[in-house]
């Protein structure tokens, strides 16, 4: 059971959207985590510096927020470690061949009304709903 948090989720979403707009305004780039990460894996993209900086900012932000405000970010992973690894491998292969994830397709691409992003988002959201249904209600898992 997790608490329904409409207000902080709206605020968090607005910040994610704002970051996307800023990265387009300043760098002319899609704020997609898959694309940013892929450029940092070998062969490393020549423009690795902004990618590494964006990543660094994204990683220290939650720690900074907890440190400065004491805000309880809330974290729980109900998934057994072997399945976290399997899920991670599948996500990695999937986002590479799918050319993006929730941030790139779901936010940036949908905001540009890209047909590829709209299709990708429909497919991965649909697959997630089905997967969670199967894991929890068919297999009786986590």
């Amino acid at each position: 059971m997790t608490e329904f948090t409409p207000l902080v989720s709206l605020l968090g979403g607005a910040l994610i959207g704002l970051a996307s707009v800023l990265l387009m305004a300043f760098h002319g780039r899609i704020a997609g985590m898959t694309g940013i990460l892929t450029g940092l894996l070998p062969p490393i993209a020549p423009d690795w510096a902004w990618r590494a900086a964006f990543l660094g900012g994204a990683i220290i932000a939650p720690a900074l927020m907890v440190l400065l405000t004491g805000y309880d970010v809330g974290f729980a992973s109900p998934v057994p470690t072997p399945w976290v690894i399997i899920g991670g491998l599948i996500v990695g292969v999937g986002v590479f061949f799918g050319s993006g994830c929730t941030s790139g397709h779901g936010v940036c691409g949908m905001a540009r009304l890209s047909p590829r992003s709209i299709a990708a988002t429909a497919v991965f959201m649909g697959a997630s709903f089905v997967t969670v249904y199967v894991v929890r209600h068919v297999l009786g898992g986590f």
Partner: peptide, 29 residues
Amino acid sequence: SLLAGSALFGIGWGIAGFCPGGAIPALGL
């Protein structure tokens, strides 16, 4: 590639509960 990759991503997301944009900031926690 787009459709099969996205389907795989959704399956992995449904298993682990992390997407790339969610997992990277979670490192900082």
